[in-house]
């Protein structure tokens, strides 16, 4: 029984990892931005599966709703509204030497991250956080809600202000520009 559960967990992780990495490589290598956006959906779903596998049920749902349901759709709207779904040649390297340098920097980052992930005892300070345990009583949603609305209440309120500012900024930025003859400083929204 335990062995079967182990195999299922390993299979879920392996399949999700393949989906995530395939989607990520697809985002980078696809010539058409629409294909990149669809590959991004694939990666986001794989990450949501791994959230479920790690008992982060609420975050998995939010991941699917916000990322796959809102952010990628926003990307697709912009791609199609602007008509920039032209294929881009990615064989040519406009800036000589950029790709080798990018690869070297990325491999250095990867090596450092892998090194850190092997040092099991150095990132855990051994101090209990005051946010509360993950494995306590109650469901995942209850625990996450109680910590967000008590310990992180100020941060939660600040994020609501941030969202309002983002909405106002998007409206101001995406408004049609006036004619050049009557160009004047645009009023800042919200005043």
């Amino acid at each position: 029984m335990i062995l079967a559960a182990t195999r299922v967990d390993a299979a879920v992780f392996a399949i999700s990892a393949v989906i995530i990495l395939t989607g990520a490589i697809g985002v980078v290598t696809a010539r058409n931005p629409v294909h990149s956006a669809l590959m991004l959906v694939m990666t986001l779903f794989g990450v949501a599966v791994l959230f479920v596998a790690q008992e982060a049920h609420f975050l998995a749902a939010v991941q699917v709703i916000v990322y796959a349901g809102a952010i990628v759709v926003l990307f697709l709207f912009v791609i199609m509204l602007l008509g920039v779904d032209k294929e881009e040649s990615i064989e040519a390297d406009p800036l000589p030497g950029q790709r080798p340098i990018a690869l070297v920097l990325a491999l250095m980052t990867l090596g450092e991250l892998l090194l850190l992930s092997r040092m099991q005892n150095s990132w855990a300070a051994g101090v209990e956080s005051d946010a509360g345990p993950l494995n306590g009583p109650g469901t995942n949603v209850e625990k996450l809600a109680s910590v967000i609305f008590t310990r992180y209440l100020l941060a939660f309120e600040v994020t609501s202000v941030l969202l309002v500012i983002a909405v106002v900024g998007a409206v101001v930025l995406a408004r049609k520009p006036r004619r050049a003859s009557e160009e004047q400083p645009e009023p800042v929204g919200g005043e």
Binding site: V62, V66, K143, I148
Partner: peptide, 27 residues
């Protein structure tokens, strides 16, 4: 530690705001 999941919640909110403003700039 439930704090890690709380941080992810805030990262999601900030990512959404960032995408909205960034796509507005691109438009």
């Amino acid at each position: 530690d439930i704090g890690g999941q709380a941080v992810v919640f805030f990262v999601l909110v900030v990512a959404a705001a960032e995408v909205v403003v960034g796509l507005g700039i691109i438009v």
